[in-house]
Design a protein around this nucleic acid. Structure first.
Lengths: 127, 127
DNA sequence: TATTGTTATACTCTATAACTATA
DNA sequence: TATAGTTATAGAGTATAACAATA
């Protein structure tokens, strides 16, 4: 039952991301970094459910676009300290607004009380 | 919010399918054929959200395992009439029972009233 | 020797377009 | 010529392991 819904969301949200030259992983990274700063790339990858080698291309793009910063940690030069830039925060906010607008439109099909229970339940089912 | 949940379900249900030598698409096909018979492979593919060329390997495997039948339509020999076999039905029921047991366990974390609203809402959100 | 980030490789999935056989 | 099914090809996404730099 989730599969058609997920397909619908991906179809609707891919163009929103593309409008900001963002991939799904790129948006994932911005969201993670905007919520809590992360010290290592491996920790970031783990946080968003990816492999550390998988996000490198994504980080390269985000850095090139000026959306994140990647600084060698002076205390351990193997480590890259990751942070979101002001521009990255702006882009993330823009995307999030569009995505939320779309999702609210979708959820508008549900009675308000059901909607609240639905979202609460979704939250409860994640670990 | 859906993504981690979907990952969790895939991780839990892949071994259930593997125990019956079924792929996710194979299970999708069995489910579609068990619910309503389909005349052409293209229609079946469309029904489960796949490409007609993508499901051919799956149909080959299912047929080889004796779970479906694929007969040329005598009225139009380009067409393959698709149907699930008794064995296919048994396998599907077995898998479905395990999957439902797991999902009920998951949903057990929710209060019964919320669970009902959650499932009803999921159903309402699909088109 | 162990760890962080990177690169290289192979593997799976998928989409597309050719191809065949029928109509 | 058009359609159903098939095959072939190339492309994207992913996982794994090897690698360089640093500890």
């Amino acid at each position: 039952m989730l599969y058609p819904l997920v397909r619908l969301l991906i179809a609707a949200e891919t163009p929103i991301l593309a409008a900001q030259d963002l991939s799904m992983w790129g948006y994932s990274v911005l969201t993670a970094l905007d919520e809590t700063p992360v010290r290592t790339q491996a920790a970031l990858a783990e946080a968003i459910g990816a492999d550390k080698s998988r996000i490198i291309g994504t980080l390269d793009e985000l850095q090139l676009a000026g959306l994140i910063e990647r600084m060698p940690d002076p205390d351990d030069r193997r480590v890259r300290l990751l942070s979101i830039t002001a521009k990255g925060r702006r882009v993330r906010r823009t995307v999030r607004k569009s995505i939320r607008a779309y999702e609210n439109e979708l959820l508008g099909a549900l009675p308000a009380a059901d909607r609240d229970v639905f979202l609460k339940s979704l939250r409860a089912l994640q670990q």
